[in-house]
Amino acid sequence: MTTPIGGWNRAGLTDRSEELAVNYPYALVDRGAQRGRRMIQGQLDKVGKGRAFHKLVVNGNPTPLYADEDGRYARAYSFGSGSNSVEIRSPDGKPVKRVQFYEADRSKPQPMIRIIAAWDDSQAEVDLHVITPDGQHAFFGQPALSNGGGLDADTVDGPGPENFVMTSPMHGLYQVWINYWGNFGADGYHFDENTRQRPVITSRITLVFNENTPRERRESFVVPLRGIGELTLVKTFRY
């Protein structure tokens, strides 16, 4: 695993935190161009076959780790300040590599709400949708909200993670949705059900509150996605 230099959360990103319409963290929307913005990257000695895949675990949040034929992988992730960890686990759950680093820049707010979506089919294009108490809708077409929330990456070339983050959440009711939008292959987007790798795609959605504080709390949900176009309400919660 490539060791972070100066904190992964600053590598290749543009800080627009001074703009009133976009509060930190800046909403990175890759649209499939993650090759120029890789944040967690490395190479596996042994690549899993069939359904036996390694896992990428970031701050305790697991994601299926898909690699190319040579074992290379790259995943985008937005890190907050404080202690952070990145771990690679083998298909049987054994630790392979772990990197712990401390982001000491406390001048930027810590995420108080983080919502993470990941799934287990590398060809599936799955999207996270979040409705905030003021009625704003964060999704791939509107990643940055005027209330400070936003998506940091629209992942189209792998199983996530996609992150929604708010550093100063407003009080009220939030809705979390997951949508199996379609598939993404060598020829781009398509809607052919026969090309996906699993008959039922499993999506894991994790809610993290007060991250990297003594009051941190998390909830995880596993949602099956059976057909293209399926939109599922995962959770409503009050903050």
Score class of each variant (00 low, 15 high):
Glu219Phe: 11
Gly172Ala: 04
Asn23Phe: 11
Ala76Gln: 14
Pro214Gln: 05
Arg98Thr: 11
Glu219Gln: 06
Thr14Glu: 09
Asn183Thr: 01
Ala74Pro: 10
Pro143Gly: 08
Gly188Arg: 12
Leu56Gln: 11
Pro143Phe: 12
Ala104Cys: 10
Pro91Val: 06
Asp152Ile: 11
Ala21Lys: 11
Arg106Ala: 04
Val96Arg: 03
Asp157Met: 14
Gln175Tyr: 15
Glu162Gln: 08
Ala117Lys: 06
Ser78His: 09
Ser85Phe: 03
Pro133Val: 15
Gly158Glu: 01
Asp134Arg: 08
Glu230Gly: 05
Phe139Arg: 03
Glu211His: 12
Val57Asn: 01
Ala138Phe: 14
Met166Tyr: 12
Ile5Phe: 12
Val29Ala: 06
Ile116Ala: 00
Phe209Leu: 11
Arg217Asp: 07
His171Glu: 10
Leu151Asp: 02
Asp134Ala: 09
Gly141Thr: 15
Val165Tyr: 01
Arg38Gly: 13
Met166Phe: 14
Phe140Met: 09
Ala104Ser: 11
Pro4Cys: 05
Arg16Thr: 13
Val223Gln: 00
Glu103Thr: 06
Thr155Gly: 01
Gln175Cys: 07
Thr3Ala: 03
Arg35Val: 13
Arg37Val: 13
Asp105Met: 01
Pro169Arg: 01
Phe164Pro: 04
Arg217Gln: 09
Asn59Met: 07
Ser220Gln: 01
Ser107Met: 07
Arg35Asn: 04
Val99Trp: 02
Ala33His: 15
Gly135Tyr: 06
Asn212Trp: 04
Asp45Gly: 02
Arg38Pro: 13
Pro91Arg: 04
Ala11Glu: 14
Ser203Phe: 06
Gly185Gln: 10
Tyr174Ala: 02
Arg204Asp: 06
Ala117Arg: 04
Ala76Gly: 14
Lys55Glu: 13
Leu145Ile: 15
Tyr26Ile: 15
Ala153Ser: 08
Ala74Met: 11
Arg215His: 15
Gly80Arg: 00
Asp120Thr: 03
Phe79Ser: 02
Gly12Pro: 11
